Computed example of a mutant assay.
Amino acid sequence: MTRIALTAAALLLPATAFAHPGHVETAGFAAGFLHPFSGADHLLAMVMVGLWAGLLGGTARLALPGAFLGAMALGGALGMAGLALPGVEAGILASVVVLGALTGLTVRLPLLAGMGLAAVFGLLHGHAHGTEMLAGSAAGYAGGFLAGTALLHGAGLALALPFAPWARRLARAMGGATTAAGLALALVG
């Protein structure tokens, strides 16, 4: 019996890797608000945007989350309209990996480049949300997932507070390792 249970669990485990396995409730503000908390992919990416922005400090603290949220709203509208974007699920997975690396290495991209990257990832996450919206409840659901996302960005910003000065000192000490070229070398090396 234990072998059957373990086999069943092992067979079901890969399904958790999918960003959107088919949520039952996709109507209203509450469903939209809870959605970003329902999968590790959304949760990690959205917290990482706030954490990376908080570690960078300055204008990035509002600019990166703002770019993510704005593009997420656009992506949600595109998804709800039925317009397909290529590679959404792969892009969502990439967002977790890339944002984790950027945060872990405290990579300092030019502000517009960081905003652009956050916006691309926001567009993909928003599209995934938008394809799940029910037409009659789009405004409530969209407002909910934007509010939930903003809360997760805020959590990342709060997590960065005690580490930001240390991370900035480390980034200055590491020099080239925290630039875009340094990130590329770290990822391939």
Rank of each mutant, 00 (worst) to 15 (best):
L134C: 07
T103C: 09
L112V: 10
A45D: 03
L151S: 07
L183D: 01
A101R: 08
L102D: 04
A171V: 02
T103I: 06
H23I: 04
G22W: 04
A63S: 12
L99S: 05
L11Q: 07
A180R: 14
M115D: 04
L99T: 00
L124W: 10
V188Y: 10
Y141G: 09
G70A: 15
A160Y: 02
H129N: 05
G154Y: 03
A30E: 11
L74D: 02
T16F: 15
H42S: 07
F163I: 04
M115E: 08
G189W: 12
T26I: 13
M48L: 15
A5T: 07
L170S: 14
G116K: 15
R172A: 15
G148I: 11
G54M: 04
A171Q: 12
G130H: 09
A30K: 10
L34P: 00
M174G: 12
M48T: 00
L161E: 08
R169E: 13
R172P: 00
G156C: 11
G58F: 10
A63F: 08
P36V: 06
A186F: 12
L55V: 01
G54P: 01
T59Q: 14
W166Q: 15
L112D: 05
T106W: 02
H153F: 00
L83I: 08
G22Y: 02
F68P: 02
H127C: 12
M133S: 07
A139D: 09
L146V: 07
G57Q: 01
G189R: 13
G126Q: 10
V49G: 05
A173P: 02
A67N: 05
T178L: 06
I92C: 13
G122Y: 10
A63K: 07
A142H: 13
L99N: 00
R168T: 03
P21Y: 06
L51Q: 02
G104P: 06
A138D: 08
L102F: 09
P36G: 05
L62I: 01
G175F: 11
E132G: 13
L85Q: 05
L51W: 01
I4D: 13
M72F: 00
A177T: 00
F29E: 06
F33L: 15
L12R: 12
G22R: 14
L99R: 03
G82I: 03
L146M: 14
L74V: 15
G28H: 14
H20L: 04
M1C: 06
A128P: 05
G76P: 02
L43F: 15
